[in-house]
Design a protein around this nucleic acid. Structure first.
Lengths: 211, 211
DNA sequence: CGGCTTATGTACCAACTGGTTACGTACCAG
DNA sequence: CTGGTACGTAACCAGTTGGTACATAAGCCG
């Protein structure tokens, strides 16, 4: 804590600050590698508050995951593609998914980290195990429209397509460093962004419209 | 270490055992979460040998990565698709890549873990920074044959295609747990394997053959 | 104003961590 | 036989770890 002796009480602000610093630290170092003392050193309050508000390291981590997932879900809820024909709608949805993933590398890393831990922390969260999936709902409706119009293949479901889109978007961030080290190409290079975004759109559209 | 008092000297065997146990432990717990004492407890030799052969935790981890990558590269070298026409060859390559990834979950996890650490350990390895990429060479030749035959799109290169295939194959294992927890579907469910493998083949072929 | 609840600060704790040292045994090739 | 090396046991180390005990004080409200 900074040198001043002033102490102003604001529970919401303190709680939010802890969550924000912890999000960055867990995303950077992983759950096992992040250190409570280091998170505390970056706060304008003391380590004691971490235990006061969250109870312990694991509970803090779960709260970080809950907040990260809720934010991404909020973004997904703002997707507006209902007015487009199915082919353009799926291309637009893929593009927006691409944008959201690229804009939130911390979220991607947190998801990777939680997979290393086999999603056992997610399993402890009521919030996370009940999370709605707006993107999947939107995708399902697009597929139905495409099926009704006879333009989309019918041997895959919404979750298959979601998997394809997510795989591409997640991989760019989650595997960025090893891919770059081994192949000498940065998948997140801004100069390649448009090409990658178009590639994803074509990939999904060409796949879905093939019969 | 087991109760027996017999002691047979075999440096290669001891070294290999340490590597094997460490691979499992690092893949399971991550670099930061794995514990030298716990690795040692699982050996038929002593913690002292870890330092004797590898020098320290980080060097052990790098050796694990080197071995894991070398094994996968060995498999990739055995791919035989030159006799197939370009479309069938790319489909076959995608399928074999799918198989290799599925058969080596520890490798996938280790790559995810190393990405959390931003590939900084890979950067310290001469072996890994010089690793040949047989799968990429094979893929490049298939693409050239497809371009010569006028059947493949020309706005993507071998690394783009490799990215698409890897993204799908890696995602199944790397994100298995969160995907399963959130969507209730196990991407590695044996009952879905054929469907997923066919999906990948179609995805890549439909994309490459679209003009 | 003061009691009370709650937010906050400081110092301390037992256990753990990767690593080292001391001392020794014993295998095995030449 | 001998020296070098592989190996074992046990103890030790300084620093770190997540967490706790105790104290202080902000600020609301009667």
């Amino acid at each position: 804590m900074g040198g001043g002796t002033e102490r102003t009480r604001d529970a919401d602000r303190t709680r939010a600050e802890i969550l924000s610093v912890a999000t960055a630290e867990f995303a950077d170092r992983g759950y096992a590698g992040a250190r409570i003392n280091e998170i505390a050193d970056k706060l304008s309050t003391t380590k004691r508050m971490i235990y006061y508000y969250f109870g312990g390291k694991e509970q803090l981590y779960v709260a970080v995951l809950e907040q990260a997932y809720s934010r991404i879900r909020g973004l997904e809820q703002q997707v507006d593609v209902e007015h487009l024909d199915p082919v353009e709608a799926i291309r637009e949805l893929a593009g927006l998914t691409f944008d959201h993933h690229e804009a939130h590398p911390d979220f991607i890393r947190l998801v990777s980290i939680e997979n290393i831990h086999r999603a056992e922390h997610i399993a402890r969260s009521e919030v996370l195990t009940r999370l709605a999936n707006p993107a999947l709902d939107v995708l399902g409706r697009i597929l139905e429209r495409g099926w009704d119009a006879g333009v989309f293949r019918e041997d895959v479901d919404a979750l298959d397509v979601h998997q394809v889109i997510s795989a591409f978007c997640v991989f760019r961030t989650a595997n960025r460093h090893t891919f770059g080290a081994i192949f000498g190409r940065d998948m997140l290079d801004p100069a390649r962004r448009d090409h990658q975004r178009r590639l994803l759109g074509d990939l999904v559209v060409d796949f879905l419209t093939a019969h």
